[in-house]
Nucleic acid binder design. Structure first.
Length: 933
RNA sequence: GGGCGAAUAGCUCAGCCGGUUAGAGCGCCUGCCUUACACGCAGGAUGUCGGGGGUUCGAAUCCCUCUUCGCCCACCA
C-alpha cells in the first residue's frame, strides 16, 4: 500500500485514489476500536460514548436513506472520539424476517416454485446463503462512505448469540405473564400468509364504495317480511357471509321493536338476530351494522359481549371458503374458492339481482395494507402470541416525560407520548419461516399447557411424550427491540461490554421507525436492564426527490450512494447531506442530476484540497515551530485575527454540537432540545475555512511566505496551527480528505503513527487584544476599495492610489495609522497604494467611509461621468436621509426609549451617529464634486 | 375523524424563546486564467418573509384566522 504521505498532492482532488488507503490506515491504527477497559464505568479514564447502528436489512443494498443515516452517526461518533470519549459505534445487520422471506419467495417464484415446494429446512438454508452475501455487501458499503464502526463487534439479529438473547427475553416476559396466547382478530396478509402487528398494517386512504344491503325480517313462523327488516351499510360485502347478527344502538327508537327478532342474511340464507349494542353509531349509515366477528376487530368485541358464534369464511390466501367443521355452511358452492375481491363483485351483483342492494355510495376511508407487499390486509380471527404492552410502556413513557430520554426534533416528543399512552398489545407471532422460531413446545400426548423453554425440548417435561415446536417465528422487531443490549452481550450480566457501554448515548434514525423500533427499545431497556437504552433519540429527515417523493426502489427515483462516492467521493456525499439537512428536515436531491445535487460537497472538498496544496507547497520542509513557542509580539494583525476567528469557529461548532450527554442524568428544560445542529456545525466550519482562512488569511500570508520574508517563520507557524485546527474541526464531516491533508501537514511534535481520526478536538486559544479588530478595519478598507474599483470599472491590473483621511479625531487617527502600517496587505488584496493626508483632495471623486471615522478617497478624475455620478450620489443621499429620519423618529419616541432594553437603544444611537456622519460626508462629496451643476 | 409540521431570493433551505439595512449554497448578471483552486477570484441583482387580522415602542419571529402542501395517528361499519 502506498502511504498517502509519500505521494504529492495531485492538482485535481481524486477521492478514489486516496479513500481506500486512508480507510485501511484507520483500521491498521485501530482507530475505531473501543476498549471496554478504558470505560470510566469499569474504572478507566475515558467517558464512554456509544451509538448502535439501526441495523440495515440484510436484503437491502445501501440507498440514500442509509447514506444519510450512517453519515449522521459517523459525524457524531467521530466528534466524540476526537473529544476524548471512548467512542463505540456498533455495526450490524437485521435478518428482516418478512422482507427477506419475500425476496427469496420472489426468487422461487421466478423458478416457478413456492416455499412449500422446497420445504422449510431447505428454504431457511437458501435464505441463509443469500444473507451471507448481501449482509457482507452492505457492511462493505458502509466502509465506502467512511463509517467508523468497530467492526470487531459486528452483530446480526439472527446470530446464535442474539438468538439466545431473543429466547431469553421471550421466556422472561412469558414467566412474568407479559406474553400470552390470544384468540382474536388480527391483521392478516393473504400474500405473505402471516399475521401482522398494528404497526405493520399501514393505513392508506382509498375511495371505496359503501353498499346498503337489505336484510328482510324473519317472521315468527319463519317466513320473510321484505317490507320490514333492516338495511345495513358495509364497504366489504363479501364478509357478510360471516355475519352472525346485526346490531343497532339500544337507544335508537327506529329499531327498538326489532331487537330480539331475526333478519335473513342474504346469499348465505341464514336467519341472524338483531342485537342491541352501544358500539353502533345511530348517526352513521343506516344506524344498523352487520356483525362479522371473525373478520372485524370491533365485531369481534361485539361477538364476545353477546356470545355469538364466530365463523371464518375465508381461507388464509383470501379465498371464500368455510372453515372445516363449520355448521351451518355459509359460503354457497358457486362462491367457494373465489378470490375475496371477485367474490365482492359477485355478491353485489347477486344482491342487485334480488333487489336487495338498496344503494351504493362512494366512501372515502382508510384501508390497511401490508407494509411489505401492500396487499390489502384482511382482519381475521386467529391464535397469536401477544406482548402485554401497558406495563412495559409505563416506565418508557415516564422516562421521556422526565427528560431521561429526549427526542429530537422536539415535535416528535408529543407523537411518542401519544402513542405510548394509547399503546395496544403487540402481536409478535408470524406465520413465516425466516426468523426466530417461537420457543414454545406442545405435547399432544398429555395435552397440557404449552412449554416455554430456553432450551430446545425433545420430549414433554410433564409426560415425557413427543413434543412439537410452535411453527411460527417472532416478529423481526422482537429481536431488534433488544439491539442496544444484545449487541453488548445481554443477557450475560457480567458482559464487559454491557457494563462498559450500556446505556448507550445517541440513537440516530429516521422517524418512520419510531414506533416499530425506538419506542420498543426504550421499553425493553427499562424492562430488562432497568435503565434507558440511550439518552438521545435523533430523528433525521428522509431523502426525497425533486417532486418531494420519498426515494424508493419501486419508484426508481433513488440515488445509489456508491455512485456518488465514485463520482465525487465519500466526503462530497457526506458534506452535501449534512450541510443541507436542518434538524429533522427532509433532504431533497435530484436523482437525474447528481452533478447538481452534490455540487456543494464537491466544490467544498475541492477548495479544501487546493488550500492544502497551496500550504504544503509554500510552507516548505523545515520544521515548524509550535505556536506556543512564538513570541506573541511577533504576531501580525492578520495572525491575531485568524487565531481569534478560529476560536470563534471552535466555539460556534461546540455550541452547534451541544452537550454530548445530560449533565446529571436528565436533560433539563434548557438542554433538552439544544445541540446536534449538524448543519450549523458544518456551515461554521465551511465559513471559517473558506471565507476566513482561504479568502483572507491565506491571501495576506502570501506576502510573508517568500523565502526572504522576515517573518516567514511566524506565518508558517500560524498557518500550520490554524490549518491543523481547521482539519480537526472538519474531520467528522469530511474524514477522508482531512486525514489525507493532515498526514502531510508538518505539525510540530506529532508522532509518526498518529491519525487525525483519533487526534484531539480543538480547543480555544486565548485573548488577542485590539489586533483582530484592527485587521477587521483593514478588511473593511479592502472591501471598500474593491467595490469602488468595480463601480468605476478600473482595469484589474491597474494599481490605484488611495488617500486616507481621518475625520474623527483620535479614533480616526488610529485607523489611519493601522491602514498605513498594513499597506502591504492593501496592496496585495486591493491593488492600492495608500497615503495619509489631512483632508481629501478637491479633485477626488470616490469616497468610502470606514469605521473609526476614517475615509478612503480615490482620485478618479477622467475616469467617470460626473453627471451620472452626481445623480447616483444624490439618490444615495436621499435614501440614507429617509432611513435616518425613520431612525431618529424612533429614537425620539419615548415609549421606545422607555421600554426597549438599554443595549438596543444604545445600538440604535450608535447607528444614528454613524449614519449621520455618512450623511454629512455624502453632502460634502456632492458639494465638492457637483457644486454648480 | 384527531394531531403535527411546512409556506422566506429563480431552486434547495438557514434564521423563528421579538431588537442592526433578512442570510447561505446552487443558479443568474458583470469583470477577471491575480504564480492553490474557473469545482475558482472580485463585484452585482433578486425577497409586500403564503393571505388577512391582532399584541407590541418594535413582528419573518408571538397570538387568531384563512389558503395550499406534506406527515403521523385512528375499530364509524
Amino acid at each position: 500500500m502506498t502511504s498517502p504521505v509519500d505521494t504529492e498532492l495531485s492538482p485535481q482532488y481524486d477521492p478514489a485514489a486516496i479513500e481506500r488507503g486512508i480507510y485501511d490506515r484507520w483500521l491498521a491504527a485501530g482507530a475505531f476500536h473501543a476498549d471496554a477497559r478504558r470505560s470510566a464505568r469499569l474504572g478507566g479514564d475515558h467517558v464512554p460514548f456509544t451509538i448502535v447502528i439501526p441495523p440495515p436489512n440484510v436484503t437491502a443494498v445501501l440507498h440514500m436513506g442509509h447514506g444519510l443515516d450512517e453519515t449522521v452517526q459517523d459525524v457524531i461518533i467521530r466528534w466524540r472520539r476526537m473529544a476524548g470519549d471512548e467512542a463505540l459505534w456498533v455495526p450490524g445487520t437485521d435478518h428482516a424476517g418478512i422482507a427477506t422471506q419475500n425476496v427469496i419467495e420472489k426468487q422461487l417464484a421466478a423458478e416457478g416454485r413456492t416455499r412449500f415446494d422446497v420445504g422449510r429446512e431447505a428454504f431457511v438454508q437458501r435464505t441463509e446463503e443469500f444473507v451471507r452475501v448481501t449482509g457482507g455487501t452492505i457492511l462493505e458499503q458502509l466502509r465506502a462512505i467512511g463509517s467508523s464502526c468497530d467492526w470487531s463487534r459486528t452483530a446480526y439479529t439472527l446470530s446464535p448469540e442474539l438468538s439466545r438473547a431473543v429466547r431469553e427475553a421471550f421466556v422472561r416476559l412469558y414467566e412474568k405473564g407479559l406474553i400470552y396466547r390470544g384468540h382474536r382478530v388480527i391483521h392478516w396478509c393473504s400474500r405473505c400468509l402471516t399475521s401482522l402487528s398494528d404497526e405493520e398494517a399501514e393505513h392508506e386512504d382509498a375511495s371505496g364504495t359503501l353498499y346498503h344491503i337489505r336484510y328482510a325480517l324473519v317472521r315468527a313462523d319463519g317466513s320473510l317480511d321484505p317490507e320490514a327488516g333492516v338495511t345495513v351499510a358495509t364497504t366489504r360485502p363479501e364478509t357478510m357471509l360471516g355475519d352472525v347478527a346485526v346490531a343497532v344502538h339500544p337507544e335508537d327508537a327506529r329499531y327498538r321493536a326489532l331487537i330480539g327478532q331475526r333478519v335473513m342474511l342474504p346469499i348465505a340464507e341464514l336467519p341472524i338476530p338483531v342485537i342491541a349494542d352501544a358500539y353502533t353509531d345511530p348517526a352513521f349509515g343506516t344506524g344498523v351494522v352487520k356483525i362479522t366477528p371473525a373478520h372485524d376487530p370491533n365485531d369481534f368485541e361485539v361477538g364476545l359481549r353477546h356470545a355469538l358464534p364466530m365463523p371464518v369464511i375465508m381461507t388464509e390466501t383470501g379465498e371464500m371458503r368455510d372453515a372445516p367443521d363449520t355448521a351451518p355452511r355459509r359460503v354457497p358452492d358457486d362462491l367457494v374458492g373465489a378470490d375475496r375481491f371477485a367474490a365482492r363483485d359477485r355478491i353485489v351483483a347477486a344482491l342487485q339481482q334480488r333487489a336487495l342492494l338498496v344503494k351504493r355510495e362512494t366512501h372515502q376511508h382508510a384501508v390497511r395494507h401490508c407494509y411489505r407487499c401492500h396487499t390489502v390486509v384482511e382482519p381475521r380471527l386467529s391464535d397469536q402470541w401477544f406482548v402485554r404492552m401497558a406495563p412495559l410502556a409505563a416506565p418508557a413513557l415516564e422516562a421521556v416525560r422526565r427528560g431521561d430520554v429526549r427526542i429530537l426534533p422536539e415535535r416528535h416528543h408529543a407523537v411518542y407520548l401519544h402513542w405510548m399512552e394509547n399503546i395496544r398489545d403487540w402481536n409478535i407471532s408470524r406465520q413465516l419461516w425466516w426468523g426466530h422460531r417461537i420457543p414454545v413446545w406442545y405435547c399432544d400426548a398429555c395435552g397440557g399447557a404449552p412449554h416455554v423453554s430456553r432450551e430446545d425440548l425433545t420430549r414433554c417435561p410433564t409426560c415425557g411424550g413427543a413434543v412439537r415446536q410452535d411453527d411460527d417465528v417472532l416478529d423481526t422487531w422482537f429481536s431488534s427491540w433488544l439491539w442496544p443490549m444484545t449487541t453488548l452481550g445481554w443477557p450475560d450480566a457480567s458482559s464487559r461490554d454491557l457494563r462498559a457501554f450500556y446505556p448507550t448515548d445517541v440513537l440516530v434514525s429516521g422517524p418512520d421507525i419510531l414506533f416499530f423500533w425506538i419506542a420498543r427499545m426504550i421499553m425493553s431497556g427499562y424492562e430488562f436492564m432497568g435503565a434507558r437504552p440511550f439518552h438521545t433519540v435523533y430523528l433525521h429527515g428522509i431523502a426525497r426527490d425533486m417532486q418531494g417523493r420519498k426515494m424508493s426502489k419501486s419508484l426508481g427515483n433513488g440515488i445509489d450512494p456508491l455512485d456518488v462516492v465514485r463520482l465525487f467521493g465519500a466526503d462530497a456525499l457526506r458534506y452535501t447531506v449534512i450541510a443541507g439537512m436542518g434538524m429533522g428536515v427532509d433532504v431533497r436531491l435530484d436523482p437525474d442530476d447528481l452533478e447538481k445535487s452534490f455540487t456543494p460537497g464537491r466544490n467544498f472538498v475541492t477548495k479544501l484540497w487546493n488550500i492544502g496544496r497551496f500550504l504544503l507547497g509554500n510552507i516548505g520542509r523545515e520544521p515548524v515551530a509550535p505556536l506556543d513557542a512564538l513570541d506573541r509580539g511577533r504576531l501580525t494583525r492578520a495572525d491575531a485575527w485568524i487565531l481569534e476567528r478560529l476560536d470563534a469557529a471552535i466555539a460556534e461548532c461546540d455550541t452547534a454540537f451541544g452537550a454530548a450527554r445530560p449533565s446529571d442524568g436528565s436533560w433539563t428544560e434548557e438542554t433538552r432540545f439544544a445541540g446536534l445542529r449538524l448543519n450549523e456545525y458544518t456551515e461554521t466550519a465551511r465559513r471559517f475555512v473558506w471565507n476566513e482562512l482561504a479568502d483572507w488569511y491565506v491571501e495576506t500570508s502570501k506576502n510573508r511566505l517568500t523565502p526572504d520574508a522576515p517573518d516567514r517563520d511566524v506565518a508558517r507557524a500560524v498557518l500550520v496551527h490554524v490549518f491543523d485546527a481547521a482539519l480537526r474541526l472538519l474531520h467528522p464531516v469530511v474524514p477522508f480528505i482531512t486525514e489525507a491533508l493532515w498526514q502531510r501537514l508538518p505539525i510540530p511534535g506529532r508522532p509518526a503513527d498518529a491519525v487525525l481520526a483519533t487526534a484531539s478536538w480543538p480547543h480555544r486559544g486565548g485573548a488577542f487584544g485590539d489586533a483582530p479588530r484592527e485587521f477587521a478595519l483593514v478588511q473593511e478598507a479592502v472591501n471598500a476599495i474593491r467595490q469602488l474599483r468595480s463601480d468605476y470599472a478600473l482595469p484589474p491590473g491597474k494599481s490605484v492610489e488611495v488617500v486616507i483621511v481621518s475625520r474623527n479625531g483620535v479614533a480616526g487617527a488610529d485607523a489611519v495609522r493601522v491602514l498605513e502600517e498594513e499597506r502591504a496587505v492593501l496592496a496585495r488584496l486591493a491593488r492600492a497604494t495608500v497615503r495619509a493626508a489631512a483632508e481629501a483632495p478637491r479633485e477626488a471623486a470616490a469616497h468610502a467611509l470606514l469605521s473609526g471615522g476614517t475615509e478612503l478617497v480615490m482620485p478618479l478624475a477622467g475616469l467617470i461621468d460626473l453627471d451620472k455620478e452626481c445623480a447616483r450620489l444624490t439618490e444615495e443621499m436621499r435614501q440614507l436621509g429617509t432611513q435616518l429620519d425613520a431612525l431618529r423618529s424612533r429614537l425620539t419616541n419615548e415609549r421606545f426609549t422607555a421600554k426597549a432594553p438599554p443595549h438596543v437603544v444604545e445600538a440604535e444611537r450608535a447607528k444614528e451617529r454613524d449614519w449621520s456622519q455618512r450623511h454629512t460626508i455624502l453632502g460634502d462629496k456632492i458639494a465638492s464634486l457637483c457644486g454648480g451643476r
